[in-house]
Design a protein around this nucleic acid. Sequence first.
DNA 1: AGGCCTGATACCCCACCGGTATCACCGGTA
DNA 2: TACCGGTGATACCGGTGGGGTATCAGGCCT
Lengths: 282, 282
Amino acid sequence: MRYFVAVAEELHFGRAAERLKMAQPPLSRAVQQLERRLGVVLLSRDRRGVSLTTAGETMLVEARLALDAVDAAVRRTRRAASAQSALVLATKAGASHELLKELLDSYAARPGAVEIDVLLCEIGEQRRLLRDGRADVAIMHAPFDVMAGLDSAEILTEGQVAIVPASHPLARRSSLTMADVSDVPDLPIARWPRHDDTYPPGPGPEVHSQSQLAQLVALGRTLLVIPASSRAWQWPEHVAVPVLDAPPVTTLLAWPAGLRSPALAELVETAERWKEGDKAQL
Amino acid sequence: MRYFVAVAEELHFGRAAERLKMAQPPLSRAVQQLERRLGVVLLSRDRRGVSLTTAGETMLVEARLALDAVDAAVRRTRRAASAQSALVLATKAGASHELLKELLDSYAARPGAVEIDVLLCEIGEQRRLLRDGRADVAIMHAPFDVMAGLDSAEILTEGQVAIVPASHPLARRSSLTMADVSDVPDLPIARWPRHDDTYPPGPGPEVHSQSQLAQLVALGRTLLVIPASSRAWQWPEHVAVPVLDAPPVTTLLAWPAGLRSPALAELVETAERWKEGDKAQL
DNA sequence: AGGCCTGATACCCCACCGGTATCACCGGTA
DNA sequence: TACCGGTGATACCGGTGGGGTATCAGGCCT
């Protein structure tokens, strides 16, 4: 199955074999054997190249899930065996430090607390980390991250702010609307790749990592609308202006549905208690 | 991994080997090898028997998920290859016939409709069927069924009714409350097994299948609170009385998160359109 | 002390996986 | 049209490993 996925991704037996660090003939045979065992043709080998059949497409997505599940089993088991099973929490680099720090501190103060490793990842990568067992729980942001397939607990809901250069006219406003920021010619909003790795059309710069975006913001080349608590990116030469009608962003803890270990349950409970306390402060 | 799960479930190498239709020694070796590869002790072989270590417990749940995912890949791929990929819909035997029939009929009337196989299953079995690929979509009932890990679309929300023998005093009431039905000495509510196969305490009869329950209802030995549309179980000698403060039950379509095939998307859209039409009727 | 039941070990054999060498086929090109 | 580059398939071979049987080691009963 791993072999099939490699071939399906490369659409080329030679390159796939190279990636798998093996020779091409056994790879061909292995895929043929998989097809024979399933009784299904997964790849159509036309002259000049390979393409997926519809069954092959199903197999590709299902096989990825299955392989991730196997990886997850291995990783989580290893983790459960070693050093009193620390939890691994995945979070985007841009997420609020203060929020996370407070949460981790309150959790660490609990009697039965286990160690929590923080795993920084790129945007949109959390799902994958949870699925293949590299992480146990992630900080995510609704409505940006799709929560499908995950259980979650809300931590904080807040408005969003626009980050603009201090010298820009918009910086003098005390508040903005989406209409104000969506079509600023000299500060186009950056474009992220879609799931198929193509970019949506538009004037903004193409970015695929947080650091790229940070760079562009620092240069004053793009405008950013982010949750109010995500202040990590605020340079002195930039100003944060509330965007009144931006959809509120909810920060939440998310974990694979059904995999609520005792340690995780405690963390979630801490978060919920913290949230209550936070509300009381407001 | 399959071997480990068998041993972990039986907690006995001999019986596990028998179940796997193989001899005991290779099974022992295979499990040892898995432990060596993971670098983790999964089973503690004490004198007289086998028990799971904590790492073994994680492995058991993760391995089950992984094996199900592999099964799902095989099943869904096979299905995708054969007969223009029919959808398989899983539903409890007790769910409303009329609702399902209307839904299937409206879907079948659509131009691009594929065939839909209906798979009847026991209560609580739908998750498993979706997970291991025997079904693509299921009819479930919130709040009874936990939707974690699944995407879903609501079809219908309705109140619940109590099914009581026509001769019983409660049958003469035009409506009831939960307090009325929760503590009727001669009609105790049946008890279902929990996930660990033990039964909650209480006076009611223990049941583990729909047919058992149907039998008890027919005998007038238990009282039942079910969604108003689930009339399949209504015998002439029984009466359905609305229970005003019973939590409303929502019937919904559920499918594994993220696996929304085109055919499934059409079915969901049909359901949602049907729901709108239904509202208009009210 | 001896039988039993358990899981582990010893040893054997064949299937299968991976490697190398080579073929069959197609497309482009001179 | 003949050649060549490139692709995936086939032929064959060797070693690992998974499965089998026979047997051992240790704990618990009688």
